[in-house]
Design a protein around this nucleic acid. Structure first.
Ligand SMILES: [Zn+2]
Ligand SMILES: [Zn+2]
Ligand SMILES: [Zn+2]
Ligand SMILES: [Zn+2]
Ligand SMILES: [Zn+2]
Length: 186
DNA sequence: GAGTTTGAAACT
DNA sequence: CAGTTTCAAACTC
C-alpha cells in the first residue's frame, strides 16, 4: 500500500510553460511581415525554464503520440515534458528543441478546435472583478462547469474518468452522460 | 509494475 | 454532424 493521497495541488501549473498565448500576428500587409513572422517564430521558441519542476509535477507516459496531442497531459497543459523527474514518455517531442513542432501541432489542433487550449472548467468564481458578495464565500457548491460537458457511460460521473468530476464541476446541460442529476445553472 | 477500464481526442 | 478508432489516464490488482 502506497500513495495514500497522490493528488493534491489542483490549481497550479508546475512545469516549464511555453510562452503563453500571445496575440497572433494580426498585422498583415506591413512591410516587415517576414521580420514580424520571424520574430513571432522566435518567440515561439520558449527558453528552457526550470521553474515548476518538482515531484508534484504531473508526468505523462505517452508512447505513440510523441506528446504532441492533447492526449498528452503535459502538452495539453502547455508545458514541456518533465526531465526531472522525467516523464515516462517514449519518443517525446514535447521538449524545447522541438518547439517548432510543438507549435505547429498546437496551431493544427487550435484550428480544429479554437477552444482546445482554453480551460476545461469555466465559470469558477475567482479572478475577474466579480462582485464579492460577502456571505456566499463560505461555501463553494458549484465550482465551475465543464466547457464541453462529459460523455460518460459507465463511470456514473463519479470517478476521475469523468472530466466534470475530476474538475470538481457538476455535470451540466452540456453533458451527455446518462441522465444524471445535472445542475441547472447554465 | 502490469493489466484493465474508460472516455476524450483523433480520425473517417 | 455521427460512428469508429486510437490512446493515455484512471483504475485495479
Ligand atoms: Zn506525453
Ligand atoms: Zn510528459
Ligand atoms: Zn513527453
Ligand atoms: Zn461524466
Ligand atoms: Zn458531466
Amino acid at each position: 500500500m502506497k500513495q495514500p493521497n497522490p493528488m493534491n495541488t489542483e490549481t497550479s501549473q508546475p512545469g516549464t510553460t511555453y510562452n503563453g498565448e500571445m496575440d497572433q500576428g494580426n498585422h498583415q500587409g506591413g512591410g516587415v511581415s517576414a521580420a514580424v513572422l520571424k520574430q513571432l517564430k522566435s518567440r515561439t521558441q520558449q527558453t528552457p525554464l526550470e521553474a515548476g519542476e518538482g515531484e508534484s509535477r504531473k508526468r505523462c507516459k505517452c508512447k505513440k503520440s510523441k506528446c504532441l496531442q492533447l492526449k498528452c497531459e503535459c502538452f495539453a497543459a502547455g508545458v514541456y515534458c518533465s526531465t526531472e523527474p522525467p516523464c515516462s514518455c517514449l519518443y517525446c517531442h514535447n521538449i524545447p528543441i522541438h518547439n517548432d513542432t510543438i507549435w505547429a501541432s498546437r496551431e493544427n489542433i487550435e484550428s480544429r478546435d479554437p477552444l482546445a487550449f482554453t480551460p476545461k472548467i469555466i465559470g469558477r468564481s475567482s479572478d475577474s472583478v466579480q462582485e464579492t458578495r460577502e456571505g456566499d464565500a463560505s461555501k463553494t457548491p458549484a465550482s465551475g462547469r465543464h466547457r464541453r460537458g462529459c460523455n460518460c457511460k459507465k463511470s456514473n460521473c463519479s470517478k476521475k474518468y469523468c472530466e466534470c468530476f475530476q474538475g470538481d464541476a457538476g455535470c451540466s446541460i452540456k453533458c451527455r452522460c446518462e441522465d444524471y442529476y445535472k445542475d441547472l445553472a447554465f
